[in-house]
Write a protein that binds this DNA or RNA. Structure first.
Lengths: 343, 343
DNA sequence: CTGAAAGCGCTTACAG
DNA sequence: CTGAAAGCGCTTACAG
């Protein structure tokens, strides 16, 4: 007899009704108690909570969700190529996002956007199945896809990129200012001939960093030498070897640590030592900045703060779909290491 | 008039009832048609699907889920310390898992298990809220926590680790065999004094790799010299510098590429060249194996296959909770590079 | 082939 | 402070 009951209990999950019947109250009262709402005496509330605990009651959030019409999930979309290339960097974002969503009782569902789906404007399954209430889009995607997504009326925050769409809410690093600051620092250190490494037609980050670098040159009345602006990746975003010119500047501002890491390797092959012969700085403060020899002076992206603003942005839009945060720029942080020489 | 209607439509999502009313059929018929079930004429089915398309209907999966009593989500738990230490490696697993869950209409929800929650046996919110139908646990956690989780009756697959619990379903790399194979290769290359780098009390992976290495020594009648077995991390799993002995073996089998990378750096500081003076091999074929100079001969973990088996395992247990896969071992793959010298 | 009825497990007004 | 009734948007027997 006892055995059979155990088996039966095992096969059916406990519901509010079970708790209600056991205490001789209604499910309404149970619901109120468990959600800490008004209209239940403290005494009864305690009793209900205690019983729920004892019986190992777990709220069925699907029911709650359906009633409220929200899934309590946010889709985090990362384009496939970034998932491969800058994976650890974007993983940190994704981790922060899920962790920061938690207090709002939200979860983050990752969706890797394949190249095909991106090209053909195919929205993720989680969109069609209403499994998410909004999206955070992490990493640059084609303008067409952005357009397509923005037509869906689902709240979207773009993270770590923006494009020409004026009405998009985006959280980006203040690349322009950080690069300007970094280049100013090199000038302070006595450098007058400074090059830039990065495909300036590739992403908005690379472009903005280039422009900040350029502004510093302008302000300091230094020449922008086109021969010193070197591409580091092809049009698809894949890293390629930099073509070093015959004559070199005294310093390179690289658009990311990986590029800096690779440039240092190439310079070494050509017989140059860093920073003795040439100064190299990076961007991102990712793994490449510390495995590099020498370790890189670089700028750290404030992943935590950017994630925080993105999460608050999407939560805000969930409450009021008309709410806009515009383009929020988050300051970077200089990290001084050993790849810069005063000359 | 037109304007008002637009606004109204915007504020309410389209349901099956809307489609049904528009076509003068019942919601039952719409449901059958949209789910490709029997009992609707092909002609009507087509008409319904077309209308759904035109009106931009999106199925409310929450309702479906509630009816079926499953959330169509799998929780992927990664202990905090691994999320930081081996992040890119585990991110690849996580990516594969979510991608492979997709055809089953499942999504993967990541949960980073904090050190505190792990120590205090606090189960994740997604468990208490029934937001997931099962878990894939990625990375070694304390035995207590394993025990606690296994008592919940929620299907669990352990990925990339196992422990003394005999009834746990785990998918692991065949570390023992891979390490045995790798060490045999070094013996073939003429090495007779071979050391091992790794804290053999830290994780089961490190232990098993150590044992495979040991088996190779035994088979080849080589001495296991305790002075050549070096720890690479403290009891909390944090990497520390290896204490190199005065007298060195001719080769080191390292428990992972990062350890190998660090050992090479240390050897270099002591004036040894790799592989000229000493051979070093790694494990995992992760980023450290290619940024290392020389690039590492190592063993690749078959992330794809392991993820596939884990996903199929959890899907299987969803259908039949009694189903067990036991401890499945997935073969690794040798990757030959430049860190081994024939002597 | 088609549909009326009931129900999944909650919450939201509303009434007492 | 407490609860009966209705409803969220589907699906599952069952009846015609």
């Amino acid at each position: 007899m006892l055995y059979r009951r155990t088996v039966i209990l095992k096969n059916r999950e406990i519901t509010m009704r079970d708790l209600a019947e056991k205490l001789g109250v209604s499910t309404v009262t149970v619901s109120k108690a468990l959600n800490d709402k008004e209209g239940v005496s403290d005494e009864l509330k305690q009793k209900i909570k205690q019983l729920a605990d004892e019986m190992g009651y777990r709220m069925n959030n699907l029911a709650k969700s359906m009633k409220e019409g929200r899934s309590y999930n946010i889709g985090v979309i990362i384009p496939e190529r970034f998932a491969v290339e800058v994976q650890s960097f974007y993983f940190r974002f994704y981790q922060q996002i899920t962790t920061m969503l938690d207090p709002y009782h939200y979860s983050g569902i990752l969706h890797i956007l394949s190249e095909e789906d991106e090209a053909q404007d195919v929205l993720p399954r989680i969109y069609h199945e209403k499994k998410v209430d909004g999206f955070i889009l992490l990493g640059q995607i084609h303008a067409n896809y952005v357009e397509h997504m923005m037509q869906t009326d689902v709240p979207i925050i773009f993270l770590d990129f923006y494009d020409q769409h004026t009405d998009m809410d985006a959280v980006v690093m203040d690349n322009f200012f950080a690069s300007y600051e970094l280049t100013n620092y090199l000038v302070e250190m006595g450098h007058r001939e400074i090059g830039y490494v990065g495909n300036i037609y590739s992403t908005s980050s690379i472009q903005d960093r280039y422009l900040g670098y350029y502004k510093s040159l302008l302000e300091n009345h230094l020449q922008l030498n086109p021969a010193y602006v070197l591409s580091d990746r092809d049009s698809r975003g894949l890293m390629v070897d930099v073509e070093l010119p015959e004559q070199l500047p005294t310093a390179f501002v690289c658009n990311c640590d990986k590029a800096a890491f690779r440039v240092i390797a190439q310079l070494r092959k050509r017989g140059y030592a860093v920073p003795e012969d040439i100064t190299v700085v990076g961007f991102d403060n990712d793994i490449y900045s510390t495995i590099s020899d020498p370790q890189l002076t670089t700028v750290e992206v404030d992943v935590l703060e950017m994630s925080r603003v993105a999460v608050q942005g999407i939560i805000g839009k969930l409450q009021d779909p008309m709410k806009q945060i515009g383009r929020v720029q988050i300051k970077g942080k200089m990290v001084y290491r050993d790849s810069v020489k005063r000359i």
